[in-house]
Design a protein around this nucleic acid. Structure first.
Lengths: 306, 306
DNA sequence: CCTCCCCCACAAACTCAGCTTGTGACCTCA
DNA sequence: TGAGGTCACAAGCTGAGTTTGTGGGGGAGG
């Protein structure tokens, strides 16, 4: 499990700025370091990639073909880092915040970072966001107590004393490692086949497991889930077990987006079984209505979920 | 343009390993550093995020609620970093490679990293990939000369002496900054409106600009493009100009995926104008057929493009 | 209850990657 | 030809992150 050393984000950022400004010197002033520091960062990147990345001239520096390519790849990493930063900032700025948001874990993890960036970008006033992560029940309690302006939860059971709006649907999907026989199946799996197979699951009481049991329960004839292959505490642990091992798992499609596109996991379709649960925005009903910032975040969430 | 300091990937990786292994000490051996180093990295992350991330005990360390959240966000960054690493490795390993790939810039930049990860992950033998980036004509020449095993290009004009297969379609889209009036339009733009507006464009001869001119040319009555607002050399430069400024641009949908989800750019629909161009895999027709590795990359490309 | 073991925190010394400072070569443009 | 720009090389510095060394504390097992 010894991966290679991760790339240095400062160097990647430097390359991006050089690409934008067209010279090492101007990039150095923009970054607040000396020209030599920029020069050395770029050189280090060139050593690491094994190709010249910029053509230096007396009139500035242009990216080479390879440089453009690397800069493009670097942009993906830097964008991901920006999402991370904004999300963490929201977690930290619990003080003097102008918008207090509650969210369940899946939403906070996989959707909120994008929403928050759009929230900060879209408007002139950079409102401080206070994000609290809790399960659906706790989010609802905090809303009622006036401790949150708006909440995002995953359960279908929304109390009637709260306003709510469905944002999107989270689908649970069956996934296997790419070497699992099911990965090459053409025909859809039957619900009975799935239920009779030992799965890797979260501990009892987890939302995803409960949703699966409920869905199987509605089928006729009733199907009971086989004993699990193993019980693991986190989604991440399940993910890596499935990727390397032999047992399938049922996970939120939000949680496995990357693994799917990266080819680490394969999705298996199941006939006659849809495991959807709504992602819902909730807020308290009162005369003043939804605060403006909360309103904006809600509309962003609706837009992004499409 | 002075962004905040980027996060330290080593710390993020450390958090991920701690989450997986359940103790700082075991994580330290996995990472090849001392327990104190791991402890200090986690502590630094905790200072940065302003919340405790792990609960230390005599039996190991579990992630807190906040820790799980941060670890989830960190995973996105680490995955992006992995894509970067693999793509760069392909660029560097020009020697003793078992698969020689040619690709045009857009494909190499936005699709190849994912394909390469799947390529390395999916099979037991980690073949060295030699990736060369060039325009479509150069890729075709290299294929004919036997210098490449397979190529991926963006033009519809595939010579008939080569085998080819369409992978997907790249669509050009009209984008504006989020504060641009078009961003709030409900009705689609007309082609004439678009053409009479000054755009930010690549220099003459660029593929995207050519595609736009051709599409407008097929309309009846013929529409001629207005003088550009500015001419910029790279897609990145166009992107930031559009994001902050007043002029629209026409860009590949692949190039602006992130800006769109991050809320930096907004897409504008144009009535009666579809700017699609095929992304095509090409290889030489010969008796031995496509080498096995090239075959695998092709099928990965087909799968991922869906 | 005591002892051993494992896990983690604290403190001080170290070390080297990356920075700044200082300088010079080179190109371009007027 | 000189002035103003760009970038590279060299040497010293500096501090963030590391190792080394040590101690506290909680569980497990006798």
């Amino acid at each position: 499990m010894i991966r290679s050393d991760p790339p240095d984000l400062k160097s990647l950022q430097t390359l991006a700025v050089v690409a934008e400004l067209g010279s090492l010197t101007s990039a150095s002033t923009a970054l607040g370091v000396t020209q030599q520091a920029v020069s050395s960062r770029i050189r280090a990147l060139e050593v690491r990639t094994g190709s010249p990345l910029v053509t230096r001239s007396a009139r500035g520096s242009q990216l080479t073909e390879a440089g453009l390519l690397v800069a493009g790849w670097a942009k993906d990493v830097l964008d991901a880092a920006e999402r991370f930063e904004v999300a963490v900032a929201a977690l930290r700025d619990k003080s003097h915040s102008q918008l207090r948001v509650g969210a369940s874990l899946t939403i906070a993890e996989h959707l909120m970072p994008e929403w928050l960036i759009a929230f900060q970008t879209g408007s002139g006033n950079p409102a401080a966001v206070d994000l609290v992560v809790a399960n659906s029940r706790a989010v609802i309690e905090q809303l009622r107590a006036g401790a949150r302006d708006i909440g995002f939860i995953e359960t279908p059971d929304v109390p009637s004393d709260l306003e709510s709006r469905v944002i999107a649907f989270d689908e649970l999907v069956v996934v296997v490692g790419v070497n699992h026989p099911w990965a090459r199946r053409r025909r859809a799996l039957s619900a009975a086949e799935l239920a009779s197979t030992a799965l890797v699951v979260r501990e009892e009481g987890s939302g995803t497991r409960r949703t699966l049991e409920l869905a199987l329960d509605t089928l006729e004839p009733k199907i009971v889930l086989a004993a699990p292959a193993s019980i693991l505490p986190t989604t991440t642990a399940i993910r890596s077990t499935v990727a390397s091992g032999r047992a399938p798992a049922v996970l939120s499609s939000l949680a496995i987006r990357d693994d799917f596109t990266l080819g680490r996991l394969a999705r298996v379709r199941v006939a006659g079984l849809t495991l959807k649960r709504p992602l819902t925005a909730v807020w308290v009903r009162n005369s003043t209505g939804l605060p403006e910032n909360a309103e904006r975040l809600l509309s962003i969430a609706l837009t992004h979920a499409r």
